[in-house]
Amino acid sequence: MRLGAFIALVGALSASALSAQAPDEIELAEEIAAIERFQTIDQKLQDIGWRLVTANAAYCADAVPAIGLQLQDAAGYRSPETARAALGIDGDFAVQTAARGSPAAMTGAFRRNREITRIAGSNPNAWSAEARLDWRRLVRAHDSIRQHLVSNPDITFEFADGSAVDIRPVTACASRFELTGDGDTALADGERVVIGTRFGGLAYPKDQLAGAIAHELAHNLLQHKAWLDRHGRSRRNVRATEREADRLMPWLLANAGYNPEAAVRFFERFRPSSGAVLFLRGSHEKWSKRAEHVRGEFAGIAAVRDSAGKSDWSQHFERETASIRGVNSSD
């Protein structure tokens, strides 16, 4: 979790900005453009992720209050001085993204790179941090927001211009979404969905990208990492979790207002291999078989759709892993 938060910050800057040169020795316009490109991709990820976790919140056992805000901390960059100059801030904390339709975005106050001086009355700039490359303070800031919202009806943010805004959260599934500055994979770790900036699906139409994100989100919602910790990571077990994640994709998409057929189109276009980054070679079935599993859920989704257009997967989705017991070390 924490390594990814660091990578996301560092990845926003191009190689020249990472050289630790003073701001007047580099082309700030180039660095500003690099940050903007990163944030544009991150905005797409956060917008889709927010839509999925809020639309499915009623069916998530671990739903939490959320506001859809991502921050950034200059202390996480290799050259905080360069970062502050590129972002146009005097302190260290600023807005990274506010997911479209989220409470943060609806206020109109959280534009990109706007400097933040206080969170719930506390000045995060005063928290201790290393001179550079310190991702821990940003994690602390996000954790403090989440913890505050658990026991309070709203949260106040103060900005460098002296203004302040109060935000009331809405309920969302607990999973977070993180863009990393390197890599071409999409993965889930139990708490986050992590997407690399070179992941091919980022160039696809939003509904197809939403399919890829929904697959990774499904791993978190179905608690597959914990299940594999208990039952073992045999090829059979990993394939079972991958099939479940594929099959839950269209449920999550449909509830969020996407056409569930987009999950099929994603597989048809992306055609992922049967290998797996985190687990075993051959842990995924062929892409055509995976698309078939997705299609197999369409009738069930339609059969239980309620008057609001939602289908309760927590009650009606059939868990394949529920029938598997014991730790398996082989096929």
Rank of each mutant, 00 (worst) to 15 (best):
L253S: 04
R230S: 12
A214P: 09
G91A: 13
T171C: 08
V95F: 08
A160C: 06
E261P: 05
F317S: 02
V10M: 00
R265S: 13
T171N: 11
A256N: 04
R325P: 00
G68C: 10
S330V: 14
R230D: 15
Q46D: 14
L221R: 00
F270S: 03
W313G: 05
K206S: 12
D331G: 13
A299F: 05
E268A: 10
I155G: 04
R140H: 14
F317C: 09
R137M: 09
A291T: 06
R198Y: 09
E318L: 13
I167K: 00
S14E: 14
R112E: 05
T241P: 03
V238P: 00
D42Q: 07
Q147I: 10
A188M: 08
R112L: 11
R239Q: 13
F38E: 02
V139G: 03
L228A: 13
S151K: 13
N220P: 10
E81L: 07
S144P: 01
H284A: 06
N237G: 07
T156H: 08
G181W: 10
G232D: 09
L28A: 11
S19Y: 04
S273N: 13
E297Y: 02
R137C: 08
Q43P: 02
F6E: 00
P153E: 14
A172S: 12
A210F: 08
A186V: 12
E25N: 15
G101R: 10
R78D: 08
E191L: 09
S329L: 13
S122E: 15
